[in-house]
């Protein structure tokens, strides 16, 4: 990544492109009291996912309200990524219930969950390295008639949509300072840039909610802060909902309305950052985990 020059505007203050949809209630900036938000958007109830001999997720229950930022923390192996995978359909859960915007997405295939409005990133980045950056972005856009065989065969009318998507994508890429790389293969990006690309690509799906698995890992600290700031703006200005896994507790406490703590597959605490910080079980889980 070319280092951002100081006079260049950081992402947080750049204009949000129209590419990003306005979803849910759109409270004015600053109006939102921490922990509030709209109605429950994602409800996870008693979800169990086990692999042979391992209960990766062991009866997790929590809710995420629309228009909030919720973080999911816990020691390594707590089951955070597995929970993401269970919610998004990559590991169909064994038991429990998952609803999104009032509809069940329990054991729905990943593509259906994505179409319902949940975008996600992966802990290990999944940039499509042998495709140009711009194609990574365009791919993510929904409602493309050109993706049907008929649309591919007779592309009349799909060209306009393609052009519009391209503009959207470039705007988004500009926001993450990846626009100069648009035509490069994604394989040429650095690890941090790939994380950004994944985030941008998730936004391209016009999501109502975004799940981020360790978005700051491997990203340089300045960029990481900008990423968080950008997430806050999307929430306040567009009403987008976020659930993110992160090990950087400083970032977690500073940026979340709600913190869900997992250990050994269970939710052991759930509350505002202040509440969670004081919770004895959380302290035990972390210290106990570190000790054992």
């Amino acid at each position: 990544m070319t280092d951002p020059t100081p006079d260049e505007a950081p992402i947080a203050t750049a204009e949000l492109p129209d590419a990003i949809p306005r979803v849910g209630p759109t409270p004015a900036a600053g109006d939102l009291p921490p922990g509030a938000g709209g109605a429950v958007l994602l409800q996870v109830t008693d979800v169990v996912k086990h692999f042979r001999g391992i209960r990766a997720v062991d009866g997790a229950t929590f809710a995420v309200r629309e228009g909030t930022v919720t973080s999911l923390i816990g020691p390594n192996g707590a089951g955070k990524s597995s929970l993401f995978n269970a919610v998004t359909g990559f590991y169909p859960p064994d038991r429990g219930a998952v609803t999104f915007a009032g509809r069940s997405i329990f054991r729905k295939p990943p593509y259906a969950v994505a179409r319902a409005g949940i975008a996600r990133t992966f802990q290990l980045t999944r940039a499509l390295t042998a495709m140009p950056v711009i194609d990574n972005m365009l791919l993510a856009a929904p409602h493309q008639r050109g993706e049907s065989l008929a649309g591919a065969l007779f592309p009349f009318g799909t060209r306009a949509r393609e052009k519009q998507l391209r503009e959207q994508a470039l705007e988004l890429l500009a926001l993450f300072r990846l626009d100069t790389k648009a035509d490069d293969y994604a394989g040429t990006l650095s690890g941090g840039q790939r994380k950004l690309l994944e985030f941008a690509r998730a936004l391209m799906t016009e999501p109502r909610m975004v799940l981020l698995d360790e978005p700051m890992a491997g990203v340089n600290p300045t960029l990481g802060r900008e990423l968080m700031a950008y997430m806050q703006r999307l929430r306040t200005e567009r009403g987008m909902t976020f659930l993110f896994v992160e090990h950087d507790l400083e970032a977690v406490m500073a940026n979340s309305d709600q913190v869900v703590v997992m250990a050994q597959g269970r939710v052991i605490a759930d509350g505002t950052p202040d509440e969670v910080r004081r919770d004895q079980r959380v302290i035990d889980a972390y210290l106990g985990g570190a000790g054992g």
Binding site: A56, P75, N76, G77, A263, A285, G288, G289, A290
Partner: peptide
């Protein structure tokens, strides 16, 4: 606080 593995159940 990055704790290491809670052993799998």
């Amino acid at each position: 606080v990055v704790a290491t593995a809670g052993a799998p159940v």
